[in-house]
Write a protein that binds this DNA or RNA. Structure first.
Lengths: 191, 191, 191, 191
DNA sequence: GATGAATGAGTATTCATTCAT
DNA sequence: AATGAATGAATACTCATTCAT
């Protein structure tokens, strides 16, 4: 006996993979339906239309990501420890939800995102923004706009993630450690 | 008498802008034709089909970008100078060819890129790879896989460029200087 | 304990209203199910398919209309009295079965009516045909084909009924009296 | 060499027939395309969408019908002559534009008619309304609401027309003469 | 060479119908 | 018996591509 509303989850799963791999516009409803082993019409039982589907997906993973980062956040620890928490959070989230972070990043400024999606994405960025603002106050972080610092971290991480997914790089403990160090050096204040 | 094959260039110009702004799938041939002030059929005189058009465009700008980086490469200078050359090349290219780098970034792993496009993109990365390999030999660069280092630089730069295009960040001299420093710290070997 | 096969009647009732108001093609099975407070699948327990449902409905009301006209038919009365009976029968039927006559009118020549429906509609017209044939024999009725005379009466009445339903005309006693007179003058033999 | 924009006319012709025979909702774009021997996409070169197509068709024939009735209107003649003009106009228009009048009548109160269509239909009715109002003033016409009188004439005529199209009645000169007389008796004031 | 009208395969979406519960 | 989730064929409409002019 299958779990309740398996089909809805199947659709979301297939949509995540396809949107991440091909993008929203290049992914057709029949593609999703076939991949999810579901009739095309079934998708419309759970989602009003294709845009509702992306937005649902986007919000789901943005929220999940935010929660991952917020969970056990070491408020009292030093800034390097906090950075480690955030960076390891990105890695953990990526491992647990294969295409999710790449999907989020590539669809962040898409024309079809609704207000809620944009708002929740804003909430996500806020975590990093707060971290960087705080760090700059104590001169622990480079005096660059927080948005630029976020771009550097995210850009690096996602580009790297793409290489790993493509099999061009292996995600060893050592590599991830080195990249974290590199990213930290990119944003920290060098005295 | 108008310049020869002006129309072909008009098409390429319009395609670049539209692909960069809306993406390949959301850009229609009639859109390009209208923007280029050309009949839709004319596009097919110069390009076999839509995919041929993107690939031509992609290869054109990837090659141009590579040439920009290679030109006046300071082979004899020290590594920091070489890094500056590459980073300033990215900036210069971006300024001279408005949508080109963004177009390259957003279409780098697209499903419709052919072998030649992927190969030429590989050639482009090779410049950075050579730079990093050489740097690691002299312990000037962090001992990470070159691919990872490229991902960090490219990822950062392109993500940043996206913010600038979106108007969320202003490309001041100071910002660019700071970002270059940040990227350099991300890849250089810290003793 | 609820009345037996209430659900079948609920479906027929909702179908009548919706078919009359929106037409067969614009009415969906889910609409009927919702309106009848019944599951969509339940409709298929009572009717093989949507076409069977319309035909059942059509036949039901055509027969009911025929019976209304036949009941207490004043066989012995003079022709004017017989005409009054028929005309008042149309009015009475309309009052008792709100959407029925309009539904019949708008679906009379529909592509999905089966042989039985067409036959029973023929039987209904037969009442008028008999009336007119008899009247022409005695030179009380205009020497036109009975079918033409029926068209005139039916066409007039139903067109009028449409206006009343649309709220553009009020069905006062006086109006109905006047229209009856008009229709009678349309078919009677003027010496 | 075919006449210019033949295809647009072919589409309109096929649409008229199909809308008249099956109704708007039951007529699909592929049906029209097939009947007009035209690609489905071609229809959209000439009409924005299906609703635009019906409205164009509706307005075209309503206007044509109005012009037919207004042409050579015997303003100075007596009322019987004017009625003949109108009635013969309906016949002539029906003969020249096979399904047009039936299409107009069956789609008059459709949900998809736009403001222009409704307005132009109002203009058409105005001709009859003016005629009846004038007639009632001189006690030549029965004291019924003009709308009712129009319903009687149109209802009769169209119901009859259906019979003729179905082959159940032959449109002889004699029949049409008789029906005109009948309709006249239906609306004229009997002293 | 250049055009744009014409096409039909492909898209998102709806809905009659089935069937496991 | 009754339900409503699931389906896929069918719908309106779009767009890459062709081809007569």
């Amino acid at each position: 006996m299958p779990t309740l509303t398996t089909k809805r989850d199947d659709v979301l799963g297939s949509a995540l993979t396809l949107f991440a791999e091909r993008g929203f516009d290049a992914t057709t409803i029949p593609m999703i339906a076939t991949d999810a082993k579901v009739g095309a019409g079934t998708i419309y039982r759970y989602f009003d239309n294709k845009e509702m589907l992306v937005n649902t997906l986007f919000q789901h993973y943005v929220t999940l990501f935010r929660e991952t980062l917020e969970k056990d956040y070491p408020v009292e620890a030093d800034i390097r420890e906090q950075f480690r928490h955030l960076f390891q959070g990105m890695i953990r989230f990526t491992n647990e939800h294969d295409h999710a972070l790449y999907f989020i990043k590539t669809h962040t400024s898409a024309y079809f995102l609704d207000a809620t999606s944009r708002e929740q994405f804003g909430d996500l960025l806020m975590i990093f923004e707060t971290f960087f603002e705080e760090g700059k106050k104590h001169s622990d972080i480079r005096p660059l706009p927080s948005k630029a610092l976020i771009a550097i971290i995210f850009g690096s991480f996602l580009q790297l993630y793409q290489l790993i997914r493509a099999g061009e790089l292996e995600a060893t403990e050592e590599l991830l450690k080195g990249v974290e160090e590199s990213c930290w050096d990119a944003v920290r204040h060098h005295s």
